[in-house]
C-alpha cells in the first residue's frame, strides 16, 4: 500500500495512505510533483506543511478518513452559494466532529482546509462560523470573537454610511 509522510509545522509526522492523501487537492499536487522529480518510483513522498500544526492536521486527516468514500468536490464548485454544499454534505458525524471544538480550532480548520484544498471540510467549518455571526449585532460578534474596534474618530460611522449602499439587500 503506497504511503505518504505528511509533516506538520511543529514536526509531527503522519503516515497516510496515498489514496486518502489525494483527497486533498494540495497533497495530491505535492505527491504528483514528488513523483515527477523522483527517480525512484517506490520512494515514499514526504510533504511538509509549514502552515498547519499537528493538532489541526490530525483533525483534517480524521475528517478525510471519515469521508474517504464521498465524491470529491471541486474547489471552485458552487462558489457563489457554498451554503448549499454545506447543508447537503453535513452529516451527524460532522456535527459531532465540530460540536466540541472551540471557535479558535474551527477557524484554524478553515485555514487548513483552504490550504489543503479540502472543499467539504471548508464548507462545514465556514457554515459553522457563519452560524455564529449571522443575526448578531456588531457588539455581540466582537464579544464572541474577542475583537477590538480600532476605528478612530468617525471612521466607524463612515463605514456604516458606506454600508448603506455598498451591498445590495
Amino acid at each position: 500500500m503506497a504511503l505518504v509522510r505528511v509533516i506538520s509545522s511543529d514536526g509531527a509526522a503522519f503516515l497516510v495512505s496515498q489514496r486518502l492523501a489525494k483527497r486533498s487537492g494540495k497533497l495530491k499536487t505535492e505527491i504528483e510533483t514528488f513523483r515527477k522529480s523522483s527517480d525512484n518510483s517506490e520512494a515514499q513522498p514526504e510533504i511538509r506543511i509549514v502552515t498547519i500544526r499537528a493538532e489541526i492536521l490530525r483533525l483534517v486527516l480524521q475528517w478525510l478518513q471519515q469521508h474517504q468514500n464521498d465524491p470529491v468536490l471541486p474547489a471552485n464548485q458552487n462558489e457563489q452559494d457554498g451554503r448549499g454544499d454545506a447543508e447537503m454534505g453535513q452529516s451527524q458525524w460532522d456535527r459531532d466532529f465540530l460540536a466540541p471544538m472551540d471557535l479558535g480550532i474551527v477557524m484554524e480548520l478553515i485555514l487548513a482546509a483552504n490550504h489543503l484544498e479540502v472543499k467539504g471540510l471548508l464548507d462545514i467549518t465556514c457554515k459553522l462560523v457563519e452560524s455564529k455571526i449571522t443575526g448578531r449585532t456588531v457588539d455581540e460578534i466582537r464579544t464572541a470573537f474577542k475583537l477590538k474596534s480600532d476605528f478612530k474618530g468617525n471612521e466607524e460611522e463612515q463605514t456604516r454610511l458606506e454600508n448603506r449602499w455598498c451591498v445590495e439587500n
Binding site: N78, E79, Q80, D81, G82, R83, A86, M107, I110, L111, N114, L122, C126, K127, V129, E130, I133, T134, G135, R136, T137, V138, I141, R142, L147, K148, S149, D150, F151, E155, E156, T159, R160, E162, N163, C166, V167, E168, N169
Partner: peptide
Amino acid sequence: KILKHCALGYLGNETVKVCRTLNKA
C-alpha cells in the same frame, strides 16, 4: 483571515455589512 473564505458564498449581505464594521482588519 477566515472572513476572506467565509465572505464569499457563506455570509449574507447584511452579515457582510456587520463584519465591515467590526474593525479595520
